[in-house]
Design a binder for these strands. Structure first.
Length: 445
DNA sequence: GTTGAGCGTT
């Protein structure tokens, strides 16, 4: 700390050499965070009570789900306590330790795999790294192009900004466009929200730049049974633990549901069918239906119970996903067998696949029909669905107990349709995360 | 109370 700092912040009085921090004094403190242990740390602001919000970390390190640090005593890496999106200081305060960002395992794995794939495949198609205009939604009326340029320049070279205005009055319409010179800047800007002149704004690929079949769709999940006290920040902080969250939408007025979009469609797929506890409330995750779709798929899906029956669409079309496209990922028989074995043995985590515990009355015909229907509905012009799809089945656990007592996996029955190899991958990744399934990941995924 | 706003006079 420089002398001038002491002058301008008199609370660190000269005679208080040790800077012992009371609560009040911890306000405006920064902690040091880095992507890797040896990299140059970035200072991240803490809250008034000395905690640090995970969302603050994620604003600088998109996708972050926690922090760790090397204990000066044990020399081991230690995790920072995380409760409801709030990071709590280690016993002796944050001090000058450098905290290292944790990323969700699957996300990191996927990134690494994609890197490997990129490196190994000679055809480096840099073509899809061209930037495009991004729409900026939610701008304050007063925001000018100058303001926009100033704000976005912190992410990279801005080569275009526009604020759309009413031709007659000249009033802002509350949205605009921005374009970056480089693709990395664009990627970062898309994956976080932006505080511009006092309002939170979202940056997205404009509709005109999206494929006709909206590849984003499969990265989005529907969150049912939300309560009114769940803010979008709550949801963002909660879902961050699974992977990078790029959007949260809560309809207003309150309607007891929300949408959460991930950067990675596999993470979205892997959550479908789950009941998760947020703020003490059980919410239900399922796939997000296309926005302006005709009605009627709900009935098809509901009875299959595990929610997988209808998540067929879009999953193999994520070619514009920044994290990759696994549509050419081939399932070999060994993997199929391994997956099936994993599912059949009672590892107790099948609940994650079929927590609904519906009594699984449908056979393959019914849910197959549902998938096929979804396919025709959403995958127009795409015929690789069937070639990359796979179905896994296992025998029904007969102990019904739909009351919710007993291990969740006992409720699983009938079959799970895995609509694409990418979904299977997501499943395997999650299986691998828990218990004896670990070998699966090492060997097969 | 389980399926969502707003998208470019280029």
């Amino acid at each position: 700390m420089l002398l001038t700092d002491l002058v301008s912040f008199p609370r660190y009085g000269f005679n208080n050499i040790e800077f012992s921090q009371t609560r009040a004094e911890m306000a405006d403190m920064y902690i040091r965070v880095a992507e890797e242990e040896n990299e140059e740390p970035m200072e991240i602001p803490s809250e008034d009570d000395g905690t640090v919000l995970l969302s603050t970390v994620a604003a600088q390190f998109p996708g972050a789900c926690g922090l760790r640090y090397r204990s000066p005593i044990s020399q081991c890496m230690r995790g920072v306590r995380l409760v409801d999106g709030v990071l709590h200081a280690p016993e002796n305060g944050w001090g000058n330790l450098v905290f290292v960002v944790n990323y969700p395992k699957e996300s990191a794995d996927n990134k690494r795999k994609m890197d490997e794939i990129d490196a190994s495949s000679a055809k480096i198609k840099r073509g899809d790294q061209k930037t495009s205009d991004l729409i900026v939604l939610g701008l304050p009326w007063k925001t000018t192009e100058q303001d926009l340029k100033e704000y976005f320049s912190t992410f990279g070279d801005v080569i275009m900004v526009q604020v759309k205005r009413d031709a007659k009055t000249g009033n802002s319409k509350g949205f605009g466009f921005v374009r970056f010179a480089d693709w990395e800047a664009q990627g970062k800007v898309i994956t976080q929200r932006h505080m511009i002149d006092g309002r939170w704004c979202d940056c997205k690929l404009p509709n005109s730049k999206q494929g006709p079949d909206e590849p984003m769709r499969s990265r989005k999940v529907f969150v049912g049974r939300c309560t009114e006290d769940m803010t979008s920040d709550d949801l963002r902080q909660f879902f961050m633990q699974y992977g990078e969250v790029t959007d949260v939408f809560i309809p207003k007025p309150f309607r007891a549901f929300a949408f959460v979009t991930f950067a990675d469609d596999q993470i979205a797929a892997s959550l479908c069918g789950e009941d998760l506890i947020i703020k003490g409330v059980s919410v239900h995750i399922s796939n997000a239906e296309p926005k302006h779709s005709g009605r009627g798929h709900m009935m098809d899906r509901v009875r299959y119970g595990n929610g997988f029956g209808a998540q067929a669409f879009g999953s193999s079309r994520s070619s514009s996903s920044s994290l990759g496209n696994f549509s050419n990922f081939n399932l070999n028989p060994a993997m199929m067998a391994a997956a099936q074995a994993a599912l059949q043995s009672s590892w107790g985590m099948m609940g994650m696949l079929a927590q609904q515990g519906q009594s699984a009355t449908s056979g393959s015909g019914a849910s197959g029909a549902s998938s096929a229907r979804d396919q025709t509905q959403y995958s127009t012009g795409n015929s690789n669905y069937s070639s990359s799809s796979a179905a896994l089945g296992w025998g029904a656990g007969s102990n019904a107990a739909s009351s919710g007592k007993g291990p969740l996996w006992q409720h699983c029955a009938a079959e799970i349709i895995i609509p694409s190899s990418s979904c299977l991958k997501a499943l395997l990744a999650r299986l691998a995360d828990t218990g004896p399934g670990k070998w699966l990941a090492a060997g097969c995924v």
